[in-house]
């Protein structure tokens, strides 16, 4: 799952070029990889790809601000569903 999320981020926000300096723990907001629309694109991807629904109240940096956090968040959603 981590790999899929990472690939989406690389394709969508990093012009298809993976970057060893970009760690799965790095903040997507602080590094400015995501802009304001980017968060919505990420949520749409997560919903379409993993069949989960993200509630407005779940739009937090804790859930979405790094590859690892997204993966953990989706993992929790899938298990709970």
């Amino acid at each position: 799952m981590e790999a899929k999320i990472r690939q989406f981020i690389v394709d969508t926000f990093l012009a298809g070029k993976d970057d060893p300096d970009f760690g799965n723990d790095d903040s997507l907001l602080d590094t400015r990889i995501l802009d304001s629309t980017g968060m919505v694109e990420l949520v749409e991807f997560v919903e379409d790809e993993f069949g989960v629904t993200v509630d407005d109240s779940e739009l937090t940096p804790e859930n979405l601000d790094s590859v690892m956090r997204v993966a953990a968040f989706v993992g929790r959603k899938v298990n709970a569903g």
Partner: peptide, 14 residues
């Protein structure tokens, strides 16, 4: 869209 959705969330702050 992001800011509207996230208006009450921590994303904005970050």
């Amino acid at each position: 869209p992001m800011l509207a959705k996230a208006g009450r969330s921590e994303v904005l702050r970050q």
